[in-house]
């Protein structure tokens, strides 16, 4: 009797395997046939362009994934250096595929994400729940870190920090930041304003030790006139900035560094 039960179970398993496997096989063959019938011919050039792209599908270029960008470049609706992640290397490879000179288009500079807040838990004033009082700065929610496909952002001691080595400048973090305090800064520019608090000096003093008080010294000292004050915060025009460092020297609280 035990043997019969066992035999039945075995047959059940066999039938289950045969049916599911059989159905899968038939459908697979069907798909193979229809795949041939409905095959879309992709220009090998487009496939080659796709091969030059990083394949992270981060969407930093504004197209739906790397396939979308490859199609757009192939059709000529996107420039060959449209991929912010691959940068000049990808642009050069694509230029070779497309048979154009990369020199004149590939010099567009890459960008790096920058968190405009340095208020770690040590320097920012915390409320009784241990949260920052400052309503402008990084709230350490971690959305940027999660949005980053490259592991370039970590939240350390209450503030998000970008690893410039890993950052590719796709902008995914900036789009996710609920405080809108992540800015994409041209790669070569070394001076950035690390505070987002628009309040007056007294109010900033109360909530953070490394906040910008809006003293306007940096904007007055800048020899290029690249810094303007907007709502108590300096804004650097990176078109004009020459990396001279006068602003960082003039800043008493090293908000610009």
């Amino acid at each position: 009797m035990f043997g019969i039960v066992l035999a039945m179970d075995v047959m059940n398993i066999v039938w289950a395997t045969v049916v599911v496997g059989g159905v899968g096989l038939v459908l697979g063959l069907l798909l193979g046939v229809t795949g041939h019938i409905f095959a879309v011919e992709i220009d090998p050039k487009q496939a080659a362009i796709r091969g030059c792209l990083p394949g992270n599908n981060c969407g930093g270029c504004g197209f739906p994934g790397c396939d979308g960008l490859a199609a757009a470049i192939f059709e000529g609706t996107a420039p060959i250096n449209a991929c912010p992640v691959g940068g000049a290397a990808a642009a050069a490879a694509i230029a070779e595929v497309m048979g154009v000179d990369a020199g004149d288009v590939a010099d567009v500079e890459g960008k790096k994400a920058f968190v405009k807040c340095k208020g770690s838990n040590d320097v920012a004033t915390l409320n009784e729940k241990g949260r920052k009082v400052c309503t402008y700065g990084c709230i350490a929610c971690g959305l940027c870190a999660r949005a980053c496909s490259f592991g370039a952002i970590t939240v350390e001691n209450g503030v998000a920090v970008v690893d410039r080595e890993k950052c590719v400048g796709c902008g995914a973090c900036a789009a996710k930041c609920p405080k809108k305090i992540i800015e994409l800064v041209p790669e070569s520019k070394t001076h950035v304003v690390a505070c987002s608090n628009h309040q007056t000096a007294k109010e900033v003093k109360e909530v953070c030790k490394v906040g910008c008080l809006g003293c306007t010294l940096c904007s007055k000292k800048c020899p290029e006139g690249a810094i303007t004050m907007e709502e108590n915060l300096p804004v650097i025009d990176y078109e004009k900035c020459t990396n001279c460092g006068t602003c960082a020297e003039s800043c008493r609280f090293k908000v610009i560094s």
Partner: peptide, 22 residues
């Protein structure tokens, strides 16, 4: 359930390749 999912997946794939082509 599992067999139906197989069938549905295959049908969708066919529809997709049809749309892609035509």
């Amino acid at each position: 359930t599992i067999v139906f999912i197989l069938v549905i997946a295959a049908l969708v794939q066919i529809v997709e390749s049809f749309f892609k082509k035509y």
